[in-house]
Design a protein around this nucleic acid. Structure first.
Length: 226
DNA sequence: GCATTAACCACAG
DNA sequence: CTGTGGTTAATGC
């Protein structure tokens, strides 16, 4: 762990761009950078938290332990803030964050973060926009998850990975079959079967974790119709 | 009733 | 960890 100078950071968030030099140095003085390997826990559900976390590089899954089993709330790719709802809402984390690949993150003291929100309205505005986008995304994901059948749910998430995360028709799944099941709320067996079914119909190509989407229109149709 | 969907279980690479 | 087959419960025509 080392402290950082935020003004020199090339990976500034949109919100942090609206901070002036003195505010940036306030941020830098309370900011600690850490790196995480694949599988390492960045913060843990039910543990105390007093930091907002800014993901500089890498990717993370947010997971929550439900009444029956654990569930992936969403994936987060750098650059992005982590733990805004869980840290601002309560002293206790309501969910955990786990690195899916080599990840670097800045830990920002919650007191300092609150102070920046108070003194810089442009900064606050960008944070609010971010939160609103996230909430709407979650609303949409929830409706899909509840109302679509498993083909549609899986198709939607494949498209999400392709369009929003990797910006490519070809990518490596960042998750195991089991974790995909936790993401789309099904069993790991069903994930296997459906990925193979989609491959058999030449809609995707799959080789272990390597995925290539061959027929986007059909996949979109499946995603919408369920 | 009969078909479909998808979970659960067991077992094998 | 992943894929497959059998079984089973729920739901829909």
């Amino acid at each position: 762990m080392k402290s950082v100078s935020c003004s020199a950071c090339l990976l500034k968030s949109k919100a942090a761009k609206s901070l002036d030099p003195s505010e940036l140095s306030i941020l830098g003085n309370s900011c600690v950078e850490a790196t995480f390997k694949k599988g390492e826990i960045i913060f843990k559900q039910n543990a105390l938290s007093s930091n907002i976390i800014y993901l500089q590089t890498g990717m993370v899954k947010l997971i929550i332990q439900g009444p029956q089993r654990s569930q992936i709330l969403r994936l987060k790719k750098a650059p992005d803030y982590l733990g805004l709802p869980t840290t601002m809402g309560n002293k206790i984390n309501h969910y955990s964050a786990v690195a899916l690949e080599e990840t670097t993150a800045c830990f920002i003291d919650i007191g300092v973060f609150r102070e920046l929100l108070r003194i810089n309205s442009d900064f606050s505005y960008e944070i609010i926009v971010e939160l609103c986008k996230n909430e709407l995304d979650q609303f949409n994901r929830t409706v899909k998850l509840v109302q679509n059948q498993i083909y549609g749910r899986l198709a939607a998430h494949l498209l999400y990975l392709s369009n929003k995360i990797y910006h490519s028709n070809e990518f490596n799944l960042p998750l195991k079959r089991n974790e995909i099941a936790d993401l789309v709320y099904t069993s790991r067996e069903t994930v296997s079967r459906i990925l193979n079914d989609l491959a058999r119909e030449d809609i995707i190509h799959i080789d272990g974790k390597k995925v290539r989407i061959l027929n986007i229109p059909i996949l979109e149709k499946i995603s919408i119709k369920g």
